[in-house]
Design a protein around this nucleic acid. Structure first.
Lengths: 199, 199, 199, 199
DNA sequence: CATGAATGAGTCTTCATTCAT
DNA sequence: TATGAATGAAGACTCATTCAT
């Protein structure tokens, strides 16, 4: 997508297949994989993914030697976007608002791509090191938001951010009625209300 | 007609396979399947399950012609226990305590056997009719508890029981640290606190 | 259950379940088997046949210890009817008419129940001894008819009856259009015309 | 025909396994399959065929995703040869001789490879579309021959070519005695004699 | 580097056949 | 004798993974 045009014309004379080709492939694969995993679960056929991405299986294997590495690639991509949002919200909103907004975003996100949470358990080997990195990113995001809200007195000081995270992820698993958005919003409000100082 | 004497007597010693053999097998299979699905996910090898249950594959297939029927069997079994608990708690505890106890139980339960929630999504075809029945049982359980707590004034009247359910199920998906129990307890408290009347 | 007490002595009055029970079963099985083989081919599931006949597999096996014996049973049954027709026609029709009628009957018959001819080849082991007996019956039927027609001068003396048989059986194998009957009739006429004395 | 001259060019020297590796495999499979089907019937083990062809099952499946496609492949191959013969005979023989020769050829052919006719019925789903194409080829072959013989006055004008076909196919189904060839010859003669104009 | 043909292990699934009741 | 549960061998089919081109 970003790639703008260019591609063919000049380029050093000899380079028939420059490495941007590889990059493009890598991205294509990740993009497709996200969709396929979302739809078919973490055991989806790699050949299928390769085909949809318009490359041979071999190519897919070159980029991601194992299934787990592919999943991790997808995963990391997505997580980065979420983490970025946390930073953005922190800069532009009040502590409690930022937290609330981010929680809603997360719920939305998870709802859309079931890979994120399912992957955590499905992958052979439990909650595994596979996602350690990604999980850390998310955790640090919510940690920051929660700490900030604690400081401003909007949340109980003994609140555990990770507990919130757990509850949020759950929302994605009961399947989504048409009232999805509403339910999520209500749930987030309950969680925030339940996290306020007792006063 | 002296009882059925004879029949019982001399056979008692030799009776290797009573007619309830089939029943026993069925239960054995369900028992084993629960464990295997919990550990290996919903795609576990049926042959493996049969072997662990000490029966031939054929027998497993006789009882559960499709994988889904087996999963449903396991599922239903478990769900019934949970629903039963809701009834029990309702009779022996105060509204809010009953709800709290049940929520904790559910969290425990889901944490122990990942089949329950994962199954919801994993099975081809989305949240599918496969679990409709079971889901209904759980939903009706929490509905009952919540309604009761609303009547006693312990919960906001505009609370959606299903929202709570969603949050609870989520707890099972982030994987379990050693602080699992604690986290669950805290989360349940947050949810209940957030569900209280606004005063 | 069946207990079949005392079949030996004076059963006449009390005979609850005499061995006609077994006979009835045997016939039921043959009847059903004919249908199933006709529809599903010679490899049809024996369990299926047993179920449709309303008996357990075990019972089927008692009567027909091997699949081949069952097929042969079906086969023999059918063949007898055809052979009987040859005799009947011989008594009531002119030589050439009898032959013609019988040929048409055979074609009809084969068309209706594909077991007869297919079985000849399908069964593992080639044209096998399995049908020797049955084949002999048919062959002798047509032999009789043909000889009679030769004597009356309606057919060439050097005609081989078996050749006719071969041609007839074939008719059943091209599948049946709606013009089945017509085609058969024309074919029979061609064969007879081609078998006439050279004048 | 295929000749596809010179696409290769500079690769010629090193090409150990030219891209026609796949092609060779495909042909090997067809060749073997013909034999196995002929001997063991249309339900023969595909794994067996793969092994005999010296390829993995996977390869067989790549080329022929379903059993029917494999059968069709074999079938088509054979049928083409027969159709070709019809054309050849037409060019080199008198009408009646061409027809006679072709009929004998067909009988021979069917006798040798039982797949051809059996396949017609065995395949699940009746005479099915699977062979539509092939059947058409044969039918058109005999149609041509018959029409030509009608025009030359050697055959009755109201003769149905398909009737002849039916009779011929049948010859393959009674199994083959040692007098096979003779019987076939006689039968063909009967059919032709019976198809002559009545004069 | 990319490709996709080949491979074969792993599962699923069906049935013939046996055997305890 | 009749029954049908149990068994396991056999075959179908799918995919992850390798490797020659």
């Amino acid at each position: 997508m970003q790639k703008t045009l260019e591609t063919t014309k000049k380029r050093s004379t000899t380079t028939r297949k420059l490495r941007s080709d590889a990059l493009r492939n890598r991205e294509r694969i990740l993009e497709v994989a996200k969709g396929v995993f979302t739809r078919q679960g973490a055991n989806a056929s790699l050949e299928e993914i390769a085909k949809q991405a318009g490359v041979g299986v071999g190519t897919l294997y070159r980029h991601f030697p194992t299934r787990d590495e592919l999943i991790e690639g997808v995963y990391r991509n997505e997580v980065e976007k979420i983490a970025a949002a946390a930073a953005r919200f922190t800069e532009t909103m009040s502590p409690i608002e930022a937290l609330r907004a981010w929680m809603l975003l997360l719920v939305d996100y998870i709802a859309a791509k079931h890979i994120i949470a399912p992957a955590l358990n499905t992958i052979a080997g439990g909650p595994s090191r596979l996602h350690e990195g990604s999980r850390a990113m998310i955790q640090s995001a919510i940690d920051g938001l929660v700490k900030r809200a604690k400081r401003s007195g909007d949340l109980r000081r003994n609140l555990d951010a990770y507990d919130l995270l757990r509850a949020l992820i759950g929302v994605s698993h009961v399947g989504s009625g048409s009232d999805w958005q509403q339910s999520a919003r209500r749930l987030v409000d309950i969680l925030i209300a339940g996290s306020r100082p007792l006063k």
